[in-house]
Design a protein around this nucleic acid. Structure first.
Lengths: 203, 203
DNA sequence: AAAATATTTAATCAAACGATTAAATATTTT
DNA sequence: AAAATATTTAATCGTTTGATTAAATATTTT
């Protein structure tokens, strides 16, 4: 058999296609992305794409699962870390998100708009709710401020961190050049946790 | 001529198509929306759509302009009202946005993702920057807190108000039923201005 | 009412696109 | 090296979809 070589090339080519699909899907969305675009981006022929993945839809499912994980996977480990304070969690989540999103600015808008198009894909909703409500983070928060609804608090944290990237296509031209935008996001690494602490202490 | 009757029907049918287009485009996005969907939603034949509007693209441009105005048109009048304080502006913007978005929850994700797909459409970018930086709101803000970057402040305000709707497809299943979601948004009408005042006074 | 004009439709076209096929090329095993 | 297997491609198929056309129906003007 051609195992060794096959596996090697498989991984390489398959990965190349997935990477290309990720780029094209993220930039254009499912409906506007053409399989020919993806093939070209990957530097391979169109038929090869269907050889590795059965269809556009299948390829999309795989890419989408990865992207969802990339967008929300940050949260789990930090929220459930027993060794950090609430304040430290705010700092780490903010730092992680801003760093990650500076490299993948259109990840949130892609994931959120595709989930809107196909809400069923978010089938782990019960799991998500349970994971969240039973997290160390929520416990710490409720111990500190039993009067603050944790969901409000989380929406604020995520809103402050994700929204500037969701709205980047609008904000960036208003702010001026890319560098100015980047500077502001860098500043927010310290500012967002400070604002959230304000809500935590004086809200 | 058939002026009177024509104009009447024109308006009615044209408006019916635009309304249908708005619904279908907003729900599915440009790429996933089919002109046949729009025609069916409007209760008319496909050809009629191209009779009134030259093409899908043209129809989309018109709908898009209206949607952008709906999403950001709220801001202008409030931000430039000389007769209200900074605090009142925070309250009014929040109240306006949450009320409007409770009726049109998928407006932000639609507008923002379509602008990402076609950034040129945001050609009024210089105008937007000037309008913003010269607004009464920014003047009031800088007079009060010269140390706070107004853009950060605005991102926070918009983030707290818009993000829960941008992320609704994710949040809603986690929160439980639609009613719970609605309740939280109603609460935020008072909470968001309070949090923003915190940043204003103690940030 | 007749003519002119506007509105609406069914049928069809042409291009775009996802997918398949069969053949060619490359790689691995024997 | 020959055979077997895996990888890659060019060409093509069938559907979907945006758009057009020509004819029918409705409305307005004369």
């Amino acid at each position: 058999m051609a195992k060794a070589k096959k596996a090697e090339l498989d991984l390489s080519t398959e990965e190349k296609i997935k990477e290309a699909a990720s780029i094209v899907f993220t930039k254009k969305g499912y409906g506007n992305a053409r399989t020919r675009d993806i093939a070209e981006e990957a530097g391979i022929n169109l038929a090869l794409l269907n050889y590795y993945f059965r269809s556009k839809e299948k390829l999309f499912q795989i890419v989408m699962a990865e992207r969802i994980d990339k967008l929300f996977g940050v949260l789990g480990p930090v929220l459930n870390d027993e060794s950090t304070t609430l304040e430290q969690k705010l700092e780490r989540i903010t730092e992680s998100y801003i760093n990650m999103l500076l490299e993948h600015p259109d990840l949130p808008i892609f994931v959120l708009s595709e989930i809107r198009n196909n809400p069923e894909q978010l089938s782990n909703r019960f799991q998500a709710r349970k994971n969240l409500t039973e997290s160390v983070f929520i416990k710490q928060l409720m111990a500190r401020r039993s009067d603050v609804n944790p969901f409000h608090f989380l929406m604020n944290l995520l809103g402050m961190n994700l929204f500037p990237f969701v709205a980047k296509p609008v904000l960036q031209p208003i702010l001026g050049n890319e560098e100015m935008y980047r500077q502001l996001m860098e500043q927010r690494k310290k500012l967002v946790p400070a604002w959230m602490k304000l809500i935590l202490d004086k809200g």
